[in-house]
Amino acid sequence: MDTMLLSLRGIYKWVNTGINRTFLLKDINLDIGEGEFVSVMGPSGSGKSTLLNVIGMLDDFDEGAYHFMGDAVQGLREKQRAALYKQYIGFVFQAYHLIDELTVYENIETPLLYKGIKTPERKAMVADMLDRFNIVGKKDLFPTQLSGGQQQLVGIARALIGGPKLLLADEPTGNLNSKQGEEIMELFQQLNRDGVTIIQVTHSEKNAEYGSRIIHLLDAHVEKK
């Protein structure tokens, strides 16, 4: 393993329901290095998505230490966390989560707008991305006019446009047919070869195999291999 990207030490997350405490994450210890392609597997409700959200800093945790590129995440304020994930992390969702009111082009462009990148540069970057994903012809369409696979391509393009170090994908092929799913997985593999660290949550053994490492979650903790 080369440089360490992130490390989780003794991460706990829980919700209190009446007198009972339900654990969503229990004593998670995990190190992920730059350039890895990790697949997270486990039954429904085992905490896969929660783990991904914690890593992506979209969700809090209650106990433990999380270091991302040397920064202690638990010590950061919301704004600083947002700045951190904005710069280094890209997200891909099962339900694509594109903005319905925006065209393909605009959906991909949005992260750059929020980064304050100037128009000419932005145009070039979006054009590049459309090219790379072969969706130039679709750039003026709205998400609802696209197939699921195409929507997910746009979602990935949007996640990648900011040049993230880490790509977090929550069941990226869950809503796709097998052929579309395969294409997405091959794309992920290609991206990983280009240097992007990827963590994906998946139900499918086959998709998990694309990764270099598989983590099994059960009842909120990492199963010993």
């Binding site: 979209l58 947002a82 904005k86 997200f91 903005i99 949005t110 929020y114 980064k115 949007r158």
Partner: peptide
């Protein structure tokens, strides 16, 4: 709600 969440995830600040 969803739109707001997505915008936040792709980097929108509260101000935006």
């Amino acid at each position: 709600l969803k739109e707001v969440a997505i915008r936040k995830i792709v980097g929108s600040s509260k101000r935006h």
